[in-house]
Amino acid sequence: MYYCTMNWDDIKIFLEVARSERLSTAAKRLSIDASTLSRRVHKLEEKLSTKLFERTVEGHKLTQDGEKLLQYARQMELNANQALKNITGDNIHNSGQVRIGVTEAFGSFFIAPHLIELQQSFPNINVELLHFARNIKISRNEADIAIAVEKPKNTSTIISKLCDYQLQLYGHKSYLDKVMGRIDPSQFSSYRWISYVDNLLYTEQLSYLKELDANIKPHFQSTSITSQYTAIKSGLGIGILPCFLAEQDNSLIKLCPNEVNVMRSLYLVTHPESKRLSHVNTVWQYLKQLVSDQKALLLPEH
């Protein structure tokens, strides 16, 4: 019986291409030439006598065999990292890097301003916030912890509801002055609206205006919640914002609180092997405690 062997460099190359889905991106991260990387991937496929990637115009997509190898390769990587931490004693002392994949709004306006206590209690834990405008692929190790706006269906990950949060309608005085100081819910479609770009939404959880009035046509759209926030703040129009963002800006005025009250949920997601690392589990528990302590910001009273 013939058994093929793979070295660790093969695994690292495979993992990077699987995660980035693009040779150019993977090559840059690995600091090697893209053509060299392509040859290495082909040689690995020849060695395994199978096709690991489908080459498409959108990039390299894993085949069924590629998905199988990914599970083993990721386990090898986690075991190697765990071994290093145990040898150096880092894991015992809650030390290491924790990557949190999160939406722009929650990462910038809720998590980042509340990391000081974590830093003070665990100075050897370094947090990286990665803003994703799509679903985060925990199985491909894009992050240690993901905060998702809808409950994932992946049964191989650990999923826990983090919190509910409220979104409401906000505007600035400079725009309200143009509409005689009030917003009439029965005339929603007549106002200037700020919103997301509908056809670029990665989840219907971000499609708020459809819940208010199907006739609303936004006058300004952006894939960035920060751009929407600054547009509303400048008086360009009105729009739906998370309360944890808008309530921190006294220049914004909450509008129609009884008629507009959008609720959404967030979910914590991680891989079982990652959850067993003390520094990852510490950040997981910290996030759980943080949303409990800041519930009034997430779900403010009218």
Rank of each mutant, 00 (worst) to 15 (best):
K12L: 11
L15K: 02
A18H: 10
S20P: 03
S20D: 08
I32Y: 08
I32M: 14
S38E: 07
V41A: 01
E45I: 05
E45V: 10
K51S: 13
T63A: 09
A73V: 03
L78Q: 09
N81T: 09
G89M: 11
I92R: 14
H93E: 14
Q97S: 13
I100T: 03
V102D: 08
A105T: 02
F109L: 08
I116F: 10
L118S: 01
V127A: 04
N135T: 06
N135K: 03
I147P: 14
K153G: 12
S156L: 07
S160F: 08
D164C: 12
D164T: 13
S174M: 09
K178H: 06
M180K: 14
M180P: 03
G181D: 12
D184V: 02
D184N: 14
Q187T: 02
Y191G: 00
W193D: 01
I194E: 00
S195N: 07
Y202I: 06
Y202W: 13
Y202Q: 09
D213V: 07
I216F: 01
T223S: 12
I225W: 10
L241W: 06
C243M: 05
D249V: 12
V260K: 12
M263E: 11
L266S: 06
V269C: 09
T282A: 12
W284Q: 10
L287H: 08
A296D: 15
L298R: 00
